[in-house]
Design a protein around this nucleic acid. Structure first.
Lengths: 105, 105
DNA sequence: GTCATGGTTCGAATTTAGTTGAACCATGAC
DNA sequence: GTCATGGTTCAACTAAATTCGAACCATGAC
């Protein structure tokens, strides 16, 4: 009788707020993470930040802001976690926004 | 590139940074201003904030953040000032971004 | 010139966001 | 079971953004 691993909370699609999404994307480190995830899901351990000396608590917090804004998904897999962009939901809710951000030089 | 005549500094088009623009747009009051300006330039005195009891210094600061991010123009006219979105420059620098933000529900 | 209007700037207080180590938790390997 | 790996959470701290009154500035009306 394995207990279900309590996952991290993700906001529902209809609860996504534009301001919150924009804020999450307004930080260079967070934006860089989103760019890394643009080509597909990535194990968190393989998602490297610009500054390599960032403590794991800081990295975790960074992902939390993106997750709570509804920008990324953070799911457990094995011993670690897998990150991915909530692309379909973002595109439905804010058409063209993610593409515009990712296409920006 | 036409020079902007104003006593307030405006960043050049090539100096606009995506993170800064996103941050400027990530505040509800600032985003509301941009939405008001979407239909055309507006005298600052006719640009009303959500909270009607906002002091003028706060309103001025709000406009400063948008101006310094390169989102809006703030030009003197008569005794007051006229605000407008730097649409062409934003569209050139970050294609689709402003439209996506303005189209978002 | 004076006056009222509209707006900026300064500085200090408040609020919010980011950083970090330590403690803790879950999983897979053994 | 134990251990190492990978990550979250907590609490305390630092840094940054916001707020707002007061002072100031420029213009148009007179």
């Amino acid at each position: 009788m394995t207990e279900i691993h309590s996952d991290l909370p993700h906001p529902a699609k209809d609860d996504l707020r534009l301001e919150t999404v924009l804020f999450a994307l307004s930080d260079p480190a967070r934006l860089d993470v989103v760019r890394q995830l643009a080509s597909g899901p990535l194990e968190m351990a393989r998602c490297h930040l610009v500054d390599p000396d960032i403590p794991k608590s800081t990295k975790s917090h960074l992902m939390k802001v993106l997750r709570e804004a509804g920008v990324i998904r953070n799911l457990p897999q094995g011993r670690g976690r897998v990150l991915s962009i909530r692309r379909e939901e973002l595109d439905e809710r804010f058409p063209g926004l993610l593409d515009a951000v990712l296409n920006a030089s």
